[in-house]
Design a protein around this nucleic acid. Structure first.
Lengths: 215, 215
DNA sequence: TCTGAATTTGACCATACGGTCAGGAAGGCC
DNA sequence: GGCCTTCCTGACCGTATGGTCAAATTCAGA
């Protein structure tokens, strides 16, 4: 189970702080939503995974939708943070290379969150449509400008920046969202450190060469 | 709604042939499963979309799982057929280029099916795990051999064929699975013919150049 | 120690869901 | 027309789910 957050359910005193309780529940919810989807997930199962009675979940998160919304928002934040690397770069090789590395790391460390996000978007983004229209749109347009500048400066080939971004998102998130398929094709074992490195290297090699950012 | 199959619900006589009834239901089910996921989809909603009473669905498909299974199998067949193009090719530029075209066409024409497939895999492939282990594994290994031959013949750079395939799948399916996100970033409108062509061209340009199959 | 706010929880409720069934309707075939 | 198979469907059932609630428990501060 996820050891990324807070203490174990019954380790300390009987009463929890709001913060740690919410973190525990969010972590359990992320896992269950990722495995079963919003419709397939049940509050009972999330409660079981969190090691809490169901009624306790409703104390912190009144409805299933509210809980789900927070799970989605959390991964979106992580997703956005990977953008910083993009900006700090001085050219496409560094910027896009680092962005690929960062997004691959997210796919590995936050596979559940990535799946929840993918599921949400696939179903028409009923919960975070406003984010797509505001934050994501702004972010995308900003990055498109950067790429266009790189093209104008002759640092890479004249590719449509939009489709390049889609390719970056698709390729990196695939390792999280379709992780089960990749694992099966890998003989049933998750990718090990070496294989993850190989994946990153391959992606960077193909894309950076493909856009003419390296020889 | 999908006009790809059969006649409209109540156009002809009261009684339907097994074949057209099943096609109608499968088409409705694909749409609903794509929009709501397996857990979120209800037999009632599928029935409504198909324009049939719920009990009639159970006449043709005894359980929800059985109906779902057939929807998934159908898209998998389409998915596999795109492989033929790969084999008939004589080199990477032609083979991979045609494969990208074919998979992009699937993403456009069968977006719902693609989403159902993605959802199934994301949730651990509870229904089609055997397909992943047999058919898909065989198909993948076969294609890896082809790519390795191309590399050996000096027709492309020494890329890990496995990760190249993942990239092809990811990039092309992204346009179906994340179609809503793309649509939102496109100002709320679906990609038009020109934009789809641009997408294909960009992907082919980047990948074919990236693997050293073209200059 | 007393008090009150925050937290925990078992029991409960209304609803919605997947699935069943019996009886009716259609249509092909003699 | 008579018969039989196939198809259709409203009404129904048991269960599981999201959510509620009031009583119990914990704990910090006066």
């Amino acid at each position: 189970m996820a050891e990324t957050t807070a203490a174990s359910p019954k380790a300390t005193s009987k009463k929890m702080r709001r913060q740690e309780a919410e973190a525990l529940i969010l972590s359990a919810a992320e896992k269950v939503f990722a495995e079963a989807g919003f419709g397939g997930a049940t509050m009972q199962l999330i409660a079981d995974v969190a090691g809490l009675p169901k009624a306790n979940l409703h104390y912190y998160f009144p409805t299933k939708e509210l809980l789900y919304r927070q799970v989605v928002q959390r991964i979106f934040q992580i997703w956005l943070q990977a953008a910083d690397i993009f900006d700090q770069a001085e050219g496409p090789e560094e910027g896009i290379g680092a962005y690929i590395d960062a997004k691959m790391e997210i796919s590995r460390r936050h596979a559940d969150g990535s799946k929840v996000w993918a599921s949400e978007v696939m179903h028409g983004a009923p919960v975070i449509q406003d984010y797509l229209e505001t934050t994501l749109t702004d972010w995308t347009n900003g990055r498109i400008e950067v790429i266009e500048r790189w093209i104008a400066e002759g640092r890479m080939a004249p590719i449509d920046p939009r489709h390049l971004l889609y390719m970056l998102w698709a390729t990196t998130q695939h390792y999280a969202d379709f992780g089960h398929q990749i694992e099966t094709l890998n003989g049933g074992a998750p990718l090990d450190d070496v294989q993850w490195e190989a994946a990153k290297t391959n992606i960077k090699t193909i894309i950076l060469r493909g856009i003419g950012a390296v020889e």
